[in-house]
């Protein structure tokens, strides 16, 4: 139990998917202009990432490794993720319309979010057990949401400031992200 807790903490803070591993940076910069969209994207990622992590782990262990076709990993993972996203979208639209209204537009974007694919690959690379895969997928997704919401909060304030012209928009966003990454570095050595 203690091990799983340590794993969760290290996935959320120390190896934060956005700021330490550089995965999922396109939606990080794309959806962080407003707090609302950032929160929606964060929720959608948590939802899909946990499911994708679990399913790709099962596919890898019981299909790819059992049949010795590990080289098909990239193709099969992306197919799993793409169809999962499509399925989740249809399922939510039919049965939980309120949640669909909130997450709807972010779901298709998740297919090309490298955080999802990246975490699935990390789970396999680190040889996690099933339980560890569940914990790490969830924790990485929470770390993603946390960093995204923090960043959106700061970015909303930057919009009110007078930024020099060449630095505007993405440029100042990246420098801000760098400073947030610097603060996240101080979590190193916590575990």
């Amino acid at each position: 139990m203690g091990d799983l807790f340590v794993l969760a903490i290290s996935c959320i803070f120390i190896n934060n998917i956005l700021l330490a591993q550089f995965l999922g940076n396109c939606p990080f910069l794309g959806t962080s202009k407003k707090m609302e969209t950032a929160a929606g994207m964060g929720m959608a990622v948590i939802f899909v990432l946990v499911m994708a992590g679990i399913i790709t782990w099962i596919v890898d262990v019981y299909l790819l490794k059992a049949l010795h076709v590990e080289y098909l990993r990239t193709v099969s993972f992306i197919l799993v993720i793409a169809s999962l996203v499509q399925f989740v979208e249809m399922f939510l639209k039919k049965s939980i319309p309120a949640l669909y209204a909130g997450l709807g537009i972010f779901l298709p974007l998740i297919t090309t979010n490298c955080a999802v694919m990246g975490v699935c690959l990390i789970n396999i690379k680190e040889d996690y057990t099933f339980l560890e895969t569940c914990v790490s997928s969830f924790a990485y997704a929470v770390g993603f949401g946390l960093a995204l919401v923090l960043f959106a909060g700061i970015r909303e304030r930057i919009n009110l400031a007078r930024v020099p012209k060449p630095l505007q928009d993405t440029s100042i966003g990246l420098i801000t992200a760098g400073i947030i990454a610097l603060t996240f570095m101080s979590f190193k050595g916590m575990v």
Partner: peptide
């Protein structure tokens, strides 16, 4: 890591 963000910015 932070240097990557700041450098690109």
């Amino acid at each position: 890591a932070p240097g990557a963000f700041v450098g690109l910015g």
